[in-house]
C-alpha cells in the first residue's frame, strides 16, 4: 500500500466515524449522503447555471429578472438553491463590452454550489484566491482569457453569504444555434468568469 493510499484510508476512516454520528443523530443517513453525491454528477451541476444564462440571452425579460433577483430567476427554471442555509442568496453580474466579471472567495471558498455544483480544485486553491483580487488580468491570462485594457475587470469577493454567477455575453454565431446547443457553450468557467463562451469554427462557417 502506498503512502497516499494509506493516508486516504485513514481519512476515510475518520469520515466513516462522522457518518455514524450523523446517522445516530438523525442528521442524514448513509443512503442520503450517497444520493446527494450522485446529484452532483447529474442534477446539481453547472448546466443549471448555463440554462439560466441561455434563457437570459434569448429573453430580455428573463435577463432583467435574473439581474434583479437571480435566486428567483433560477427557481423559475426549477433550480432551487440555498437549501442548507437560508442566508445564501444568488446574485448575477453581467459582462458587457465595457466590463468583465470574475468571482472568488478570498476568506474561504464560497461558491454557488446549489446552482453550479461543487467548485473545482483551482477555485479553492490559495493560489487563485490570493492572486485574483490583486492581479485578475494575470490570472485570467493563465486561463487563456486576455481582457482588453479598455475593459474594466470587476472582481467579486463573496465575503458574506451572497453567491455570485457571471452572465457572459452571447458570442457571435450562437443565435443560430438551438437553446440546448447554446447551453453547451456556457461552461462552468464561463459562470465563474475565467472563460468566455465561444462558438466552434465549423458552426460559424455555416451561419
Amino acid at each position: 500500500m502506498s503512502a497516499d493510499h494509506h493516508r486516504n484510508a485513514e481519512l476515510q476512516a475518520r469520515v466513516n466515524r462522522l457518518l455514524d454520528v450523523a446517522e445516530a443523530r438523525g442528521v442524514i443517513t448513509r443512503a442520503g449522503v450517497d444520493q446527494r453525491i450522485e446529484a452532483f454528477s447529474d442534477r446539481v451541476t453547472a448546466r443549471n447555471g448555463a440554462e439560466m444564462i441561455v434563457r437570459a440571452w434569448n429573453s430580455p425579460e428573463y435577463r432583467e429578472r435574473l439581474l434583479a433577483d437571480a435566486g428567483a430567476a433560477a427557481a423559475e427554471l426549477g433550480h432551487v438553491g440555498g437549501g442548507f442555509s437560508s442566508d445564501i442568496r444568488l446574485h448575477a453580474v453581467a459582462n458587457s463590452a465595457e466590463v468583465h466579471n470574475v468571482i472568488v472567495c478570498t476568506l474561504c471558498s464560497c461558491y454557488p454550489v446549489a446552482w453550479l455544483g461543487p467548485p473545482p480544485a483551482w477555485y479553492k486553491s490559495e493560489a487563485y484566491r490570493s492572486r485574483v483580487v490583486r492581479d485578475p488580468r494575470g490570472v485570467l491570462a493563465e486561463f487563456g482569457l486576455v481582457v482588453p485594457d479598455s475593459t474594466e475587470v470587476r472582481v467579486w469577493d463573496a465575503s458574506a453569504e451572497a453567491r455570485y454567477i457571471v452572465v457572459p455575453e452571447r458570442p457571435e454565431g450562437a443565435e443560430a444555434l438551438s437553446e440546448a446547443e447554446q447551453v453547451a457553450l456556457v461552461t462552468r468557467d464561463c459562470l465563474i468568469g475565467t472563460a468566455l463562451p465561444t462558438v466552434p469554427a465549423r458552426v460559424r462557417e455555416v451561419t
Binding site: 483580487v133 490583486r134 474594466e152 475587470v153 470587476r154 472582481v155 469577493d157 465575503s159 458574506a160
Partner: peptide
C-alpha cells in the same frame, strides 16, 4: 467597490475594481 489602485497601489490596472460584501 474598491478601485484596484486603492488596494494595491499604482501597479494595479487603472479602472479595475474589487467588490467585497461587508
Amino acid at each position: 467597490a474598491f478601485p484596484s489602485a486603492e488596494l494595491w497601489g499604482p501597479d494595479a490596472h487603472s479602472g479595475d475594481r474589487v467588490h467585497v460584501d461587508l
